[in-house]
């Protein structure tokens, strides 16, 4: 049984935000929510690094541990999903999550928030696969269609990988062995010439 994981290769990520756009478009994400974020460290300085972050589908998910209504479940592939019919939008999972994955759409005026929304690894939720109800609540169920998350499939530099953790880590290991610690991004030396 596969264990689905995301991995973002910071040496390859060029902060194009293609993954964010692909996710928002594919899952019809509500306005004001990004299930995925691109975070850049040392922006504009030599050696800056960008990483695409969303729900990391933790093995021992802290969001599930703190949820007062127990709306989280983990599939056999290790994908952490939740039931929006149970969610009360309390925000505990937001505080527990180390990646800031849970998001809350604005429901009414004065900051009243709705039910939690997060990355589903494009696996929908606890409704009939690829039904209209599932799409409206959770987004597209690509896993049921035999496809993988669109953010990773759309990544132009193949920085973001999504799939069986064993296969993903093997690819990353080969990359590290090949580049030997040198930056992998194309044109890096042109954009950031070595300091003399």
């Amino acid at each position: 049984m596969a264990r689905m994981k995301f991995l973002c290769d910071t040496e390859r990520c060029i902060e194009c935000n293609g993954c964010v756009t692909a996710c928002n478009n594919e899952n019809n994400v509500p306005w004001g929510i990004n299930r995925r974020h691109v975070v850049t460290l040392g922006d504009g300085r030599r050696g800056e690094k960008s990483v695409s972050v969303a729900c990391m589908h933790c093995t021992d998910a802290p969001c599930a541990a703190v949820c007062p209504v127990d709306c989280f479940y983990t599939t056999e592939d290790g994908i952490v999903l939740h039931d929006k019919d149970l969610c009360i939008g309390c925000g505990y999972c937001f505080y527990a999550c180390p990646f800031g994955a849970p998001q809350y759409p604005q429901q009414e005026a004065f900051g009243v928030r709705g039910k939690m929304d997060k990355c589903t690894f494009c696996a929908g939720g606890p409704l009939p696969d690829n039904s209209k109800e599932e799409f409206l609540k959770y987004g597209r169920n690509r896993i049921a269609e035999g496809k993988l998350p669109l953010c990773a499939e759309m990544c132009a530099t193949k920085a973001l990988l999504a799939g069986d953790g064993t296969v993903v880590s093997e690819i990353y290991r080969k990359r590290v062995m090949k580049r030997g610690g040198r930056p992998d991004a194309l044109g890096w030396q042109t954009a950031y010439p070595a300091e003399k």
Partner: peptide, 20 residues
């Protein structure tokens, strides 16, 4: 804690198949 109380996801059964 973490004992799921919601409805069953049909994807779980599908995931078990080696073909998938």
């Amino acid at each position: 804690p973490a004992r799921y109380m919601g409805s069953m996801d049909p994807l779980l059964a599908k995931e078990r198949s080696p073909e998938q």
